[in-house]
Structure formats: C-alpha cells, structure tokens
Nucleic acid binder design. Sequence first.
DNA 1: GTTAGTACGCACTTTGAAGTAAGGTACTAC
DNA 2: GTAGTACCTTACTTCAAAGTGCGTACTAAC
Lengths: 135, 135
Amino acid sequence: MAESTETIFEQVPGGVFPAACSSRVLLDHVMSKWGVLVLVSLTDGPQRWSDLRRRAQGISEKMLAQTLRTLEADGLVHREQQPVMPPRVDYSLTPLGEELAEVLVPLLRWVGRNAEAIIDGPAGTPGPVAPADAG
Amino acid sequence: MAESTETIFEQVPGGVFPAACSSRVLLDHVMSKWGVLVLVSLTDGPQRWSDLRRRAQGISEKMLAQTLRTLEADGLVHREQQPVMPPRVDYSLTPLGEELAEVLVPLLRWVGRNAEAIIDGPAGTPGPVAPADAG
DNA sequence: GTTAGTACGCACTTTGAAGTAAGGTACTAC
DNA sequence: GTAGTACCTTACTTCAAAGTGCGTACTAAC
C-alpha cells in the first residue's frame, strides 16, 4: 500500500501531496474534455485531421487544432503532414502515447461501465459501504 | 483493439464519441484538482477530515468539504461521523471507490513518473516518433 | 473575554478551459 | 468573380471549478 502511493504525484516526506506540479499539468492535458476523446480515438490507429473531427462529436475546428497541438507538444501524439493539396495531416500515438493509453484505457473502461449508475442513479443513494476501521 | 474502445464512453454506431455524458461528469469529479488527491490519500486507508486537510497541500476547508461531498454522492467515498465533541468525521473508500482506485492508481503512477520530463523537459522537443502508416 | 481545535456552510470573486465568430493559406472547379 | 476542400489561427466571450472571506456550533484553556 505504501508502495502504491509513494511514486504518485511525487509525495513528499510527511505523506503530503502537493497540488501544483507537472503531474497536474499533464493530467489536465490528458483528461481534458477533448484530449481524452482524441487519445481514445487514436488507439484505433492513425487518423487524419478530418477523421478526428468527425469522430469527436461536437468538437470545433478550433478545439481540435488546439488539443492536437497540446498533445503533440507533450510528445503523446505524432503529426505528419502530407505534401498534397488539399492539405492532409495524419495523427498517431507516439510510443509514449501508446504507453499512456495502456493505463488510460482501463480507467475509461471502468468509467464507461459505471458512470450511468453513479451519476444518473437514484438521487441520494450512496454507493456500497466500506467498513471505517480508523485506528 | 476494437474491443478496447467499444465500451469506452459508450461509443455509438459509426465510431463516434459523444462528448457530453455521465462518463464525462464522473471523470470530471474523479480527476478534479482535489478529487484525485483525496482519492489517492484514501488508498492509504480511512482518514479523518483534518488528516485529509493536512495531506492535500494547499486545499481550503471549503474545497475539501465540497470535494468530499461530491465523492460521497458518487458513492466512491464513505463518510462516518463520530458522536463526539469536537466533531470528528472519518472518510474511507467504498468498495466502488476501491475498484476505481485499482484503475486510477496505475494512471497516476505513470503520470507521476513521466510528467516532469514531458512538461518541464526541453522546449520544442516532441516525444519519440511512431510510424504513421495511415492507409 | 480571547484563542484554539474540529468540521462544515454561504456569498461573492477569480481564473482558465471551452466556445463563438471570423479570418487565413493554397488549390480546384464553375 | 464565387464556391468548395482541408487544416489551421486570432479576437473576444462564456461559464464552471476553484478561490477568498466570513460565518456557525461546541468545548477547553488562558
């Protein structure tokens, strides 16, 4: 248990978790509204700009361009421009992005399976109870 | 590969990912600035309010109370009030919260290991390149 | 009386991600 | 000239998460 947390968010001595750090920034990029959908889409393989646009329902050109720029800067997404007209740009996950997807997908799968019952379930119904043996 | 995505965010026919749904709401709760720190802290075992306050560096009483209220409403966190004065409230992960932690911790571990190099690394240095064999 | 500890709630403000609208490049077709 | 394609960029606006400040109730110590 101690091992499971001691490498998370660079816990400092005393068991304290700093709130502002690189991890938070990266998490915000990855888990952003459109970031997560783009990353998930690219787990299906490389896709061009307009394909990504069509798959992320409701995304604006502006948000798609911005999201891809951020993820590319983070080294998670690879951008490859084709020397053709009309312009064609292909995006794919980098090896780093693939690594991330391996730990991201199980979380998203869990959320996808449980969200409806949690969020849309009977109001005021908390989840199952765990024993609180604080000692 | 198709299996890895078809249960995520309830992908609808045509390979499109809806942006607004219960999954997004739950993800926002879990991955919120203080939500994730509270959940991680509770993977160490049950803790009282003031312990959580001390461990999440920089959190205000207001944000801690609000975050715990949200996570409790989601059924991820169990709240147990002691009949004592001064007031004492203990918090712990529910079984559902434990399930979530199992898929959340690997992601946070990955982020904790890689964030510094990604965010604070040399500017303009993208990550490793993956082949873009778009068909 | 004040201060401290404990665990909140309320009113209002700030901040940054996301959104809207318009603009741009380069080319083809009519 | 207009219209369309694909992939962006810029200026400004909106809005919800987070923040600030103050309040509540109780007991104990000074």
